[in-house]
Amino acid sequence: VGDQVLEIVPSNEEQIKNLLQLEAQEHLQLDFWKSPTTPGETAHVRVPFVNVQAVKVFLESQGIAYSIMIED
């Protein structure tokens, strides 16, 4: 199991704000291929294997929908 690319769908401005804060966490080494800008629009982010669980827990705790787009 390696890195994953998640497709994330924020449903409101609050969730977009939370994702932008997540993007700013440099220690997570997230690679946003497509940043969140509009509710209902997908964002794509590559998550290093060591941080996959932490990111998924965060998304679930914020009620942000996501799916695994690419499993490496």
Rank of each mutant, 00 (worst) to 15 (best):
V1H: 15
V1T: 15
G2Q: 13
G2D: 10
G2E: 08
G2N: 09
G2K: 10
G2I: 07
G2T: 08
D3S: 15
D3G: 14
D3M: 12
Q4I: 13
Q4D: 03
Q4N: 04
Q4G: 03
Q4P: 10
V5A: 04
V5R: 05
L6A: 01
L6F: 14
L6W: 13
E7R: 09
E7F: 07
E7V: 12
I8V: 08
V9W: 12
V9T: 08
V9A: 07
V9K: 15
V9C: 07
V9I: 14
V9F: 11
P10A: 08
P10C: 07
P10L: 06
P10K: 01
S11F: 09
S11W: 11
S11R: 11
S11H: 14
N12P: 01
N12Q: 02
N12Y: 02
E13W: 15
E13N: 10
E14G: 06
E14L: 09
E14F: 10
E14H: 07
Q15P: 00
Q15G: 02
Q15Y: 01
Q15E: 07
Q15I: 02
Q15A: 05
Q15S: 02
Q15F: 02
I16K: 02
I16G: 01
I16D: 01
I16P: 00
I16N: 02
I16W: 06
I16E: 01
I16H: 03
K17R: 14
K17H: 10
N18G: 14
N18P: 02
N18A: 15
N18W: 15
L19C: 03
L19W: 01
L20R: 10
L20G: 05
L20A: 07
L20S: 06
L20W: 14
L20Y: 07
Q21A: 13
Q21T: 11
Q21L: 13
Q21E: 15
Q21S: 14
L22M: 09
L22V: 03
L22A: 03
L22Y: 06
E23Q: 15
E23D: 07
A24M: 09
Q25N: 11
Q25S: 12
E26Q: 12
E26M: 11
E26N: 14
H27S: 14
H27N: 11
H27W: 15
H27I: 05
H27P: 04
L28T: 03
L28A: 03
L28I: 06
L28P: 04
L28R: 02
L28E: 02
L28W: 14
L28Q: 03
L28S: 03
Q29W: 06
Q29G: 14
L30I: 11
L30Q: 01
L30K: 01
D31I: 09
D31R: 08
F32S: 02
F32V: 04
F32H: 02
F32A: 02
F32P: 02
F32L: 02
W33G: 05
W33I: 15
W33N: 06
W33H: 10
K34L: 06
K34N: 08
K34R: 06
K34V: 08
K34D: 05
S35N: 12
S35M: 15
S35H: 15
S35L: 15
S35I: 15
S35E: 09
S35K: 14
P36A: 12
P36Q: 02
P36M: 03
T37H: 07
T37C: 04
T37R: 04
T37P: 04
T37F: 05
T37W: 05
T38E: 09
T38W: 09
T38Q: 10
T38A: 12
T38F: 13
P39S: 05
P39Y: 04
G40Q: 04
G40H: 08
G40S: 03
E41A: 10
E41I: 08
T42W: 03
A43Q: 04
A43F: 15
A43K: 01
A43P: 00
H44I: 15
H44P: 02
H44R: 12
H44K: 08
V45Y: 02
V45S: 01
V45E: 00
R46V: 07
R46K: 12
R46D: 01
R46T: 06
R46Y: 10
V47Q: 00
V47T: 01
V47H: 00
V47L: 03
P48C: 03
P48H: 04
P48R: 04
F49Q: 11
F49D: 06
F49E: 06
V50N: 11
V50Y: 10
V50Q: 14
V50S: 11
N51G: 04
N51V: 09
N51P: 00
V52R: 04
V52Q: 05
V52F: 13
Q53A: 11
Q53S: 11
Q53T: 12
Q53C: 06
A54N: 07
A54Q: 10
A54H: 09
A54Y: 14
A54K: 12
V55M: 08
V55A: 02
V55S: 00
V55C: 02
K56N: 03
K56P: 00
V57F: 13
V57I: 14
V57Y: 12
V57G: 14
V57K: 12
F58R: 02
F58V: 04
L59A: 00
L59R: 00
L59K: 00
L59H: 00
L59V: 01
E60P: 00
E60S: 06
E60L: 05
E60H: 08
S61Q: 15
S61I: 10
S61N: 11
S61L: 12
S61K: 11
Q62A: 13
Q62L: 11
Q62I: 09
Q62T: 05
G63E: 05
I64S: 00
I64C: 01
I64T: 01
I64N: 00
I64D: 01
I64Q: 01
A65R: 12
A65L: 12
A65E: 15
Y66I: 01
Y66W: 08
Y66S: 01
S67G: 06
S67C: 06
S67K: 13
I68S: 05
I68V: 14
I68A: 04
I68M: 06
I68K: 03
M69N: 05
M69P: 04
M69L: 11
M69I: 08
M69E: 04
I70H: 11
I70Q: 11
I70C: 08
E71M: 11
E71K: 09
E71D: 14
E71V: 11
D72K: 09
D72E: 15
